[in-house]
C-alpha cells in the first residue's frame, strides 16, 4: 500500500516540506501578500501590540489608586513577583490543576474512544451525547457542577455516594481544587476522545487483521499496535488541552474564587490588576505567565508540526 511506503519517519527526518517553488507568475506574490496582510495586521494589533505594552507596564511602578505616582521601576515588579510567594504557589496550583485535568481527561478520553470505536447499537447517539460536555458553556458547567452536583447536602454526587454507603463529602468547602479538576476533566474528556477517536479511525485495518490472523489477542494487539499508532494523537490532544487549560479562569472565578489552592495564574493576575489595581505588578505576572506558556507552546508546536509535516506543509 502506498500509504505504508511513504513512512512518516523518513519525512520527519528530512527538512520540513518547504513550499514547492512554483513557477510563479509575477503578480502571484503580491496577490498572496494582499490576501494575507489584513489577517496578519489584525492579529498583530489585537494581540502583539497589547503584549508589548504589557511588558512596558511591567517595568513601571504604577498603582491605579495613585495615578499621579507613576515612574520607571526597572525590574522591581519582577523582584516583587518572585519574592511574594503568591506567584510560586499560584504556579503550583496551575500546574497541579492543568496536569491532573489533562491526565485524567486523556485517560478517560482514551477509554471512551476505544469503547465508541466499536460498532454497537446506538453508537451515533452515544457519540453525540459524549461530545456534549465540551459544548456546554463553561460558566454554565461550573455553576451546575457546583450547585447541583457537588453541593454537600442536596448534590447528586453525595446522593450517589450515599447509595453505596459512603458518607457525604463537603466538596465545595473542603476540597475546592478537586471540584475544579472534576469540571475541567468532564469538559475536556470529549475533546481528548474526539482526537483519539480520529486516531483510531485512521488506523489501517490490514495490520489489525494480520495481527488477528497471527493469533494476537485483543489486549496484545491494542498494546503493541494501536497504542504506538495513537501516540501522535495523544501528543496533540495533551498539548492542545494543556495550552487551553494553562489559561483556565472560568471555573476558578465561578466556583472557588481562588480559594483552597485553586488560584491559577490567570486568576491571580486578574485579582492583582482589577481588584488590587496594581498595574505594574499585574503586568509582570502577565509577562511571567506568557514566558511559562511559551515553554509549553514551543513543545506543542514542535509536535504539531511533526504531525503536520507528514501531510506536506504548503505542499
Amino acid at each position: 500500500m502506498t500509504t505504508l511506503t511513504s513512512t512518516p519517519t523518513t519525512r520527519r527526518l528530512g527538512r520540513p516540506a518547504a513550499p514547492a517553488a512554483k513557477p510563479a507568475r509575477p503578480r502571484g506574490l503580491a496577490v498572496s501578500r494582499a490576501l494575507l496582510w489584513p489577517a496578519l495586521a489584525t492579529s498583530i494589533v489585537l494581540t502583539q501590540i497589547p503584549f508589548v505594552v504589557t511588558i512596558y507596564y511591567s517595568l513601571q511602578n504604577w498603582n491605579l489608586l495613585r495615578p499621579g505616582d507613576r515612574d520607571f521601576a526597572g525590574l522591581d515588579n519582577y523582584a516583587t513577583v518572585l519574592r511574594d510567594g503568591s506567584f510560586l504557589s499560584s504556579l503550583g496550583s496551575t500546574v497541579l490543576i492543568t496536569g491532573s485535568s489533562v491526565l485524567l481527561s486523556t485517560l478517560l478520553g482514551l477509554l471512551f474512544a476505544v469503547l465508541l470505536d466499536r460498532s454497537f447499537t446506538g453508537q451515533g447517539a452515544a457519540r453525540t451525547l459524549m461530545i456534549t460536555p465540551f459544548l456546554v458553556m463553561p460558566a454554565a458547567a461550573a455553576l451546575v457542577w457546583k450547585w447541583s452536583i457537588l453541593e454537600s447536602t442536596t448534590g447528586m454526587a453525595n446522593w450517589a455516594l450515599g447509595l453505596v454507603g459512603i458518607p457525604p463529602v463537603a466538596w465545595n468547602t473542603d476540597v475546592p481544587i478537586v471540584t475544579i479538576i472534576l469540571v475541567l476533566t468532564w469538559q475536556y474528556t470529549p475533546f481528548a476522545m474526539l482526537i483519539l477517536l480520529a486516531g483510531l479511525q485512521a488506523q489501517t485495518k490490514d495490520v489489525l487483521e494480520a495481527a488477528a490472523v497471527d493469533g494476537a489477542g485483543a489486549v496484545r494487539t491494542f498494546l503493541a499496535i494501536t497504542l504506538p499508532h495513537l501516540r501522535q494523537y495523544v501528543e496533540i490532544s495533551v498539548l492542545l488541552a494543556s495550552i487551553m487549560l494553562l489559561q483556565v479562569f472560568d471555573p476558578v472565578a465561578i466556583m472557588t474564587r481562588g480559594t483552597g489552592g485553586t488560584k491559577t495564574l490567570s486568576y491571580l493576575l486578574y485579582e492583582r490588576a482589577f481588584v488590587g489595581l496594581q498595574v505594574g505588578e499585574a503586568a509582570a505576572y502577565g509577562v511571567m505567565t506568557v514566558l511559562i506558556t511559551i515553554v509549553v507552546a514551543t513543545v506543542a508546536l514542535r509536535t504539531l508540526f511533526k504531525v503536520f509535516s507528514k501531510e506536506g506543509l504548503g505542499r
Partner: peptide, 14 residues
C-alpha cells in the same frame, strides 16, 4: 497559532 496560545491575561491590562 502562537497568538492563540498566548494567555489573554498577557494583553488584557493595556
Amino acid at each position: 497559532i502562537s497568538t492563540r496560545f498566548m494567555p489573554v491575561a498577557a494583553s488584557i491590562i493595556p
